[in-house]
Amino acid sequence: MKEELKRIREYLMTGVSYMIPIVVIGGVLIAFSIALSGVQAGKGAVVTNPVLKSMMDIGTASFSMMVPVLAGFIAFGIADRPGLAPGLVGGVLANQLKAGFLGGIIAGFIAGYVARWIKSWRVPKNLRPIMPIFVIPLLSALIVGFLMIYILGNPISSAMTAMTNWLKSMSTGNAVILAMIMGAMIAFDMGGPVNKVAFLFAAAMIGEGVYTIMGPVAVAICIPPLGMGVATLLAPNKYTKAEKEAGYGALAMGMIGITEGAIPFAAADPLRVIPSIMVGSSIGAAIAAIGKVGDHAPHGGPIVLPVVDNKIMFIVAVLIGIAVTALMVNALKKPVIEEVEDESEVAE
């Protein structure tokens, strides 16, 4: 069991290692285009300069590849080359179904294990040359595609509608409890469907003249990447070289309100990272609600400070959320030992 769990982590890390440059390209280019354009009250990030607009388009295109690359290379890690194409297909479908990076991870594992299973089939000798380039990718893509469309599609859509209705019912109750729930939702899948439900609900409230729902959400948005970036600086021995490099990108993305900067960490170690960022974002959002922080722009992170009500409490909430996330995740994580294991294997 322990060996199988170790292999699953290796498959995840394969996907994450190929995904990190995609996240960096997308996050940094979008961040720069927004930072150089600014945020307008009631409109959020408005990029009108043609060069900056092109920069944002390139970053958006990169982000659109993030989930497919993650899924594709998880499948590649499991089944080698025949798993890559069906994994990419599964990742694209996860995007289309708005299943986020968690859906991409599921698609990658399904594609990889299905492709590996088909590779194990005993086939006539004359069919073997076409198995890795035709039969395995085709059958694997069909299986993962049908599973994503017919098994995951409707439940995801129904769950999103139910969550939106639930938040509407909660908005008439305790503002702090609502903020904690929305903060946890924002951090849960970092730009995925659960995140989008909370964000779009808060953005809709701006149109109603209610800014104190978007305020806590704006705080929660930046805590996952900033918290994970700070965590890598506080305990570098608990992160791989790739994760430490991703930490710098996460810090930059967090400043501009790009929650996806935390995805590489969550994908590599979901059981420790996701609870940590959810707790940090939830506490940060609650503090913002207590401080009656309002945000007039449908966006988050320190970049929206010019259009935030009660700026001091916004900063306090963000800093406390970062501290909670960084300290919690580092308390849960163990020092990275892969390099030591590699050296022992060489010695043997």
Rank of each mutant, 00 (worst) to 15 (best):
G15V: 03
A79L: 11
A107F: 12
R272C: 13
A268F: 11
I263H: 04
P193Y: 14
V16N: 09
E243T: 03
A71H: 03
K244Q: 07
V135K: 08
S171W: 03
A246C: 09
I283G: 14
M56Q: 06
S281N: 08
D309E: 07
S281D: 12
L142C: 12
A79D: 02
W121Q: 07
V123T: 00
P225M: 05
A41P: 06
V279L: 15
K125L: 14
I34S: 09
I277E: 13
N126Y: 07
A179C: 04
G90H: 13
M163Q: 11
A162F: 13
M182P: 07
D269M: 14
I105P: 02
A288D: 06
N330M: 13
S62D: 05
I320F: 10
F314M: 03
G209K: 10
N237T: 04
G153P: 07
V318T: 04
Q96F: 15
L5H: 07
I223W: 13
M160Q: 09
A202E: 00
G284K: 05
W121D: 01
V114H: 05
I118F: 10
G294P: 01
F73K: 03
G249R: 04
P193I: 04
A220L: 11
L29I: 01
K292S: 08
G191S: 12
A107G: 08
A266G: 13
V28Q: 04
V47D: 03
G26R: 01
S64K: 10
I133W: 06
M66Y: 03
V230F: 08
S344P: 07
I74A: 00
M328W: 07
G100P: 05
F201W: 00
